[in-house]
Measured scan of single mutants.
Amino acid sequence: YHPGVFRGDKWSCCHQKEKTGQGCDKTR
């Protein structure tokens, strides 16, 4: 789950560079 959006080459919430990554918050 990603609370942010994928912008450019990373997520705005956790700056992960993998769009298919696990995400940053799994509580939702």
Rank of each mutant, 00 (worst) to 15 (best):
W11R: 03
C14M: 06
D9M: 03
G21L: 07
C14F: 03
R7A: 09
V5C: 07
P3H: 04
C13T: 00
H2T: 03
G8A: 10
C13Y: 01
R28N: 12
K10T: 05
H15R: 07
G21H: 05
T20G: 12
C13L: 01
Q22P: 06
D25V: 14
E18T: 02
K19T: 13
H15I: 00
H15P: 03
T27N: 13
W11T: 09
S12I: 01
K10Q: 11
Q16N: 13
K19G: 07
K10M: 11
G8V: 05
K19E: 15
G21S: 11
G8F: 06
R7G: 07
K17H: 13
T20S: 14
D25C: 07
Q16T: 08
K19R: 08
T27Y: 06
H15C: 07
D25L: 08
W11Q: 04
P3Y: 15
K19S: 15
K10I: 03
G21I: 07
R28K: 11
C24R: 00
P3A: 04
F6S: 07
K26Q: 15
K19L: 12
S12D: 11
C24K: 00
Q22M: 10
R7Q: 11
H15S: 09
C24W: 00
Y1H: 09
F6C: 06
G4P: 05
V5F: 06
S12Y: 02
S12P: 01
H2F: 00
C14Y: 05
H15A: 05
C24T: 00
G4T: 04
Q22N: 13
S12F: 00
H2G: 00
R28Y: 11
Y1V: 05
P3T: 14
K10W: 03
K19V: 04
H15E: 13
T20R: 10
C14W: 03
F6Q: 11
G4N: 04
C13G: 02
D25K: 12
D25I: 06
H15N: 06
K26L: 12
C24H: 04
K17E: 13
T20P: 03
C14P: 06
G4Q: 06
V5M: 15
Y1E: 14
K10D: 09
H15L: 08
G4W: 01
K17P: 13
E18I: 12
S12M: 05
K10N: 08
H15D: 15
K26V: 15
G4F: 07
D25A: 08
G21C: 13
K19N: 15
T27R: 13
D25F: 12
F6N: 12
W11M: 09
S12N: 01
H2N: 09
T27I: 11
G4D: 11
H2L: 03
C13Q: 01
K26C: 03
R28V: 12
P3S: 07
S12A: 01
F6D: 11
Q16Y: 04
T27H: 12
F6P: 07
F6W: 14
C14R: 04
H15V: 01
P3M: 12
G8C: 07
V5G: 06
C24G: 06
D9I: 01
Q16M: 15
Q16G: 13
K17C: 03
K26Y: 13
C24F: 02
W11I: 02
G21R: 03
T20H: 09
G21E: 09
K10L: 03
G21Q: 09
T20D: 15
G21K: 05
H15F: 14
E18A: 09
C13N: 11
C14H: 04
Q16F: 02
C14L: 00
G21W: 01
D9F: 06
V5R: 10
G21N: 04
V5A: 13
C14E: 05
R7V: 15
D25Y: 00
P3I: 09
D9G: 14
R28M: 15
P3F: 10
H2E: 00
R28T: 06
E18H: 01
F6Y: 13
K17R: 11
W11S: 04
R28E: 14
T27W: 14
C14S: 05
Q22I: 03
V5W: 01
Y1P: 00
Q22T: 07
Q16A: 13
H2K: 01
Q22H: 13
H15G: 10
G8R: 08
D25G: 12
P3W: 06
C14G: 04
H2V: 01
T27P: 13
D9R: 12
R7W: 01
D25H: 04
K17V: 09
V5H: 07
F6R: 04
C13D: 03
R28S: 14
F6E: 11
G21D: 13
R7F: 03
K17L: 07
T20A: 13
G8W: 01
S12L: 02
T27M: 15
E18C: 06
Q16I: 11
S12Q: 15
T20W: 07
T27E: 07
W11C: 06
K17Y: 05
D9Q: 14
E18M: 14
S12W: 00
P3C: 08
Q16S: 10
D25S: 11
F6G: 02
W11F: 09
Q16H: 04
C13V: 03
E18N: 08
C24Y: 00
G21F: 10
V5Y: 07
Q16L: 08
S12C: 01
D9S: 13
E18K: 02
T27K: 10
Q22S: 09
E18R: 05
R28Q: 14
D25N: 12
P3N: 10
R7N: 11
Q22R: 07
C24M: 09
K19C: 05
R7S: 08
K26W: 08
G4A: 01
D25Q: 07
K10R: 09
G8T: 11
W11E: 02
Q16C: 09
W11K: 10
S12H: 02
